[in-house]
């Protein structure tokens, strides 16, 4: 069975684990390299990106994650996870893992008083719109040529995909709606189906 790791250094780990389980996945916490080796896919949850980048470096998980994703491991970052996965951060000297060719701007929709719940149309998920929860959320300012734009809010990118890397600036793990989690599970299935011929 496909095992989905949730990076468990800091943030809303439990919420992702509960949602992945309800969506039919087999999630577990990833705290070190040995855990990462057991994962077929990885979710980087919501949290604080400056904190988690430091903790990734200190626990020597940064390079192994990059290598696994380059070798085809599906990855999904939500909010903080999107920032960590981005190529760079607008206006800040902040290091990232550079796993998806986007530039993000942190806290772009505002501070906590501007955090919102929004009915967000996501064509790839069909109707109805997704009840998206944005918390001090980033937006996407630049897209690489291979990046697929899946959703926008007020004209700003908030959900993108490049190959087997997915990024959302909102928190599907806080909604009752499991469609984004199911979408990621399907990405994992597709990437494994795509890999099968080469493996055989």
């Amino acid at each position: 069975m496909t095992r989905i790791g949730v990076l468990a250094l800091q943030g809303d780990v439990e919420e992702h684990i509960a949602a992945l389980r309800r969506a039919g996945g087999d999630p577990f916490e990833v705290r070190n390299c040995a855990d990462l080796a057991q994962a077929d896919a990885l979710v980087i949850p919501g949290g604080e990106s400056t904190t988690v980048m430091k903790l990734l470096t200190r626990s020597a998980l940064d390079r192994p994650i990059v290598e696994r994703v380059h070798a085809g491991m599906p990855l999904w970052g939500t909010c903080m996870g999107m920032i960590v996965a981005a190529r760079d951060v607008a206006g800040l000297e902040q290091s990232t893992l550079d796993l998806i060719d986007i530039t993000v701007r942190r806290n772009a929709f505002g501070r906590q008083n501007e955090s919102v719940e929004v009915e967000l149309p996501i064509p790839a998920l069909g109707e109805p719109p997704f009840r998206a929860i944005f918390i001090r959320a980033p937006w996407i300012e630049r897209y690489g040529p291979k990046v697929e734009r899946l959703a926008e809010r007020n004209g700003r990118g908030v959900m993108v995909r490049e190959g087997s890397v997915l990024a959302t600036s909102f928190h599907p793990e806080l909604s009752d709606d499991l469609r984004v989690h199911r979408y990621f599970l399907q990405m994992i299935v597709d990437s494994q189906a795509g890999k099968a011929p080469t493996a055989a």
Binding site: D12, C79, Q112, R136
Partner: peptide, 13 residues
């Protein structure tokens, strides 16, 4: 949800 949510993002910190 949004008010409790920010605290959820701080967990483990």
């Amino acid at each position: 949800t949004v008010k409790r949510g920010l605290a959820q993002m701080l967990k483990g910190g």
